[in-house]
Design a protein around this nucleic acid. Structure first.
Lengths: 345, 345
DNA sequence: AAGTTCTACTAATGCGGTTTAGCGGTGTCA
DNA sequence: TGACACCGCTAAACCGCATTAGTAGAACTT
């Protein structure tokens, strides 16, 4: 049970004042190179690390950024998206010794409360915002608090504040590439099983499905929304396949629903891809363990996290508000998509 | 961009000294009830929240606990276990206004480094330890640092320090219940596809498989270890089914591998459960979206998290080191297990 | 009525850093 | 040679809170 060393210890041992130590360790002018080296050596010997509370208190950074995930507990499911995103975020943060405060809450009101509290407690220097929504209260809140933030997932929409940076993927182009793939395989009736209706990217995918489908002359292309859960994915699939003239292809907004949908198809004896093609938006191990393996839209999720974290750090360093586009999702064709009406493989 | 209110503001407005405010807001004696009420009202009006850095600095708590997840990035897969665990942890923490610092790292050495840094920075009051191992360096490290900790997943092993609390599930009993289920269905040849070899619960499951199997007279019961990934789960399954006399049942240590295994079986035309029964350790949406749905060992994972968080808070409040057993995992029989050699349903 | 205890408060100190002001000593320039 | 800037450092103030010591006044002893 060692005592934590402080700059006072270093100062005593190096024979200088505490301020000199502070200057030396922070690369500030005011000490000679010799003293600087000596102080740094002593600090290392003692295994000194700055007390984060003291740092935060003296007006500087808290050395911490926040991420709140607003999802009802029961939908905190199998998606690998978040863990991967977070791991990417932390690669960047850890290298700069910034910690990540993470919280899971039930809904967006609770999320706003958390942001307020973190701000009031001066616990975080900035936050990452996920699941941006069509009418999102968070940008206004954060800019009124003066809390730097980076929105993950939405392009800088006209929704008010040009004060938040954004990291986003081009969902429209991605949707176009999926539809092009299906169209080329002869599909004309396509349904899109989307995620939560309020989310910005859901809306964007839905609208781009519509425009792109009409451009390609696909009849009857439409979207249905769900809560991203396997249950609703399965349920939607059942309803869709029960229709008089069911589609020949379904696009699912996440991997879990796609797998659930594939399972429903198997259960009903609907052959994939002979009678039904399936595309999953976001790849994961899931899409590779099913049989047949699912064609998926692959994104570099942890890369996404890295971009966002980097941008947030830049903002904290006084960088400008930016809108950063991640690389375009790539369609990885596997066995779950095929020519219409052709027994596969 | 409002300024954060401080106790000084409250003091001025309430017409008392700063110390009186501090006493009043912390429920300490030294102020009359009238003053206390007045101060609390003013604090509320101003929307005051204690500055966490200042609190931490004045010798008290950081108001923060840590959780490090040491997993190679590529295995940060689909498992829902962690997100659920974390959500349970936070239900408890949030109600006490304690924040959770979360970090994902590559391996256990990096994890130890994070614990050291957090301690040196006085960033956390305590930590939650997951994935306890057979020869685990963390208990010794943490007790040498004097950092309170709760180990999630291992019973208080003889591995040294009786200084860490523990929250655990009875894996041996769980394994026994699985084997009893399989034995009753007539299975005599069972293989256990385990997780990472170093982990304490992996070892425990393996050893309890052996003792329980010999008790039941199961021949040839054995375990193979993997890295928990779908890839190794599938690979192990292939090898096992290729044997001269393959088992009639396989127990997988997580849901992802179980699904991967089921997929391999489907691919080879091995009927489930007619020719092969499958049990997944840990239930999730995954086990319900496959066809057939997988028999699984259900645990209340978020309840597990709640228990652990509560125990850590108790420790921080000076409570004793305890070893807490979570409720016994329950076997949920579904369609993936059946009588040996009987075409199911 | 003087001494004691208790109540309700204020003043002062410290936590571990950062930062501003200040201060000798040296070098530069007019 | 005096004025001035600069260098390398120290002293002191400050961040927001908790806490200890101290203090005035009221209540209670005896």
């Amino acid at each position: 049970m060692t005592r934590r060393p402080t700059i006072k210890d270093i100062a005593r041992r190096a024979g200088v004042s505490e301020s000199a130590v502070s200057f030396a360790l922070n690369g500030r002018p005011g000490v000679s190179q010799g003293t600087r080296d000596r102080v740094q050596r002593v600090a290392e010997e003692l295994g000194w690390q700055p007390n984060s509370a003291a740092r935060a208190l003296s007006g500087l950074r808290a050395g911490c950024v926040g991420l709140v995930l607003a999802r009802p507990a029961h939908t905190l499911g199998v998606e690998s998206f978040f863990l991967q995103l977070v791991s990417g975020v932390q690669e960047v943060l850890a290298s700069r010794k910034v910690a990540l405060l993470f919280q899971v809450v039930e809904d967006i009101d609770a999320e706003c409360a958390v942001h307020r509290r973190w701000w009031a407690e001066k616990r975080v220097d900035g936050v990452l915002i996920v699941d941006p929504r069509a009418h999102d209260p968070r940008p206004a809140l954060l800019s009124s608090l003066g809390l730097p933030a980076v929105v993950i997932g939405a392009p800088a929409s006209g929704s008010g504040s040009a004060e938040l940076s954004t990291v986003w993927a081009d969902d429209s182009a991605a949707m176009a590439s999926v539809l092009a793939h299906l169209h080329e395989l002869g599909h004309r009736r396509v349904v899109h099983v989307a995620g939560l209706p309020g989310l910005a990217h859901t809306e964007r995918r839905i609208s781009s499905l519509r425009t792109e489908a009409s451009r390609l002359g696909l009849t009857d292309a439409r979207s249905v929304t769900t809560d991203y859960s396997d249950a609703e994915g399965a349920e939607a699939t059942r309803r869709i396949l029960d229709e008089a003239e069911p589609p020949t292809a379904i696009i699912y907004d996440n991997d879990v629903m796609a797998v659930a949908g594939a399972s429903v198809a198997a259960e009903r004896g609907t052959a994939v891809p002979a009678e039904l093609s399936i595309v999953a938006w976001d790849d994961s191990a899931l899409c590779r363990v099913t049989h047949p393996r699912l064609t998926a839209l692959v994104r570099d999720t942890s890369g996404f996290g890295r971009l966002a974290a980097q941008e947030l750090l830049d903002r904290l360093d006084g960088g400008p508000v930016r809108s950063i586009q991640a690389e375009l999702p790539r369609l990885e064709p596997r066995e779950s998509t095929g020519r219409v009406g052709v027994r596969g493989v």
